[in-house]
């Protein structure tokens, strides 16, 4: 029997959720808690296998609660069940130790599958979540100090080429029909992107990366 606790401050939703499991014989709902405090009361007297946890709670943030549960009770698995779909939040919740992340309009089948998978000690990532996590993996932060070819926008390329031709800021501005201030901004962002302090070494880098031929 999988012992499940629901932590959600919306009474109607929590009740509806409980009724979903009425015909799942391997799942037992231990309690519905409407805040973190009442959850800890339940936790004290029971061993809970799976927690269905909302992120917006009245007393504490679901993120912090998740972290605490995982730290204090490593055998209790947390499934985030929330209305929030912000990618940053999903990643944060996974980082804090949630084994699955479901949106509240999920299906019954997915809910059951998630609980059973998590109970067996495995993570449950659905397709959307997988894609999101993959996306953030294959795009490492572009840090100029780490090297690597920087990404330049079209306007930055234009300015770079004219700098390499030896034009002054004033001349570049006139040539591109933009303000001097704009050219200065582009020059400073180019320096940042190439990780250099001065124009000559920037041009050297640019030639190495074949921005200028």
């Amino acid at each position: 029997m999988i012992k499940v606790t629901i932590v959600d401050d919306h009474v109607i939703f929590a009740e509806g959720l409980e009724s979903i499991f009425s015909d799942a014989h391997d799942i037992q709902i231990l309690a519905r808690c409407h805040n973190a405090e009442s959850f800890w009361e339940v936790m004290e007297n029971n061993s809970i296998d799976v927690v269905l946890l909302d992120i917006s709670l009245p007393d504490v943030s679901g993120l912090n609660l998740c972290e605490l549960i995982v730290r204090k009770h490593p055998n209790t698995r947390v499934i985030a069940l929330t209305m929030h779909d912000e990618p940053s939040l999903v990643k944060k919740m996974i980082k804090k130790g949630a084994m699955a992340y479901l949106l509240k309009n999920t299906t019954k089948a997915e809910l059951l599958a998630a609980i059973r998978t998590v109970y067996s000690g495995k993570k449950y990532y659905n397709e959307n979540l997988m894609q999101l996590l993959l996306e953030s993996e294959d795009k490492p932060k572009k840090n100029p100090a780490m090297g690597g070819r920087p990404h330049l926008t079209r306007r930055e390329k234009e300015v770079l080429e004219l700098i390499a031709e030896g034009l002054t800021t004033q001349q570049i501005a006139e040539k591109l029909f933009v303000s001097i201030k704009a050219v200065e901004f582009h020059r400073s962002s180019l320096l940042t992107k190439f990780g250099t302090q001065n124009t000559p070494s920037m041009i050297k880098e640019a030639i190495e990366y074949e921005f200028i031929t």
Partner: peptide, 21 residues
């Protein structure tokens, strides 16, 4: 919207999920 309407919508969804089988 988020906490009110959203919660109601998800409750309705749950109800439907429950009736499906």
């Amino acid at each position: 919207l988020h906490d009110g309407l959203g919660a109601h919508l998800s409750s309705i969804k749950l109800f439907i999920e429950n009736q499906k089988d």
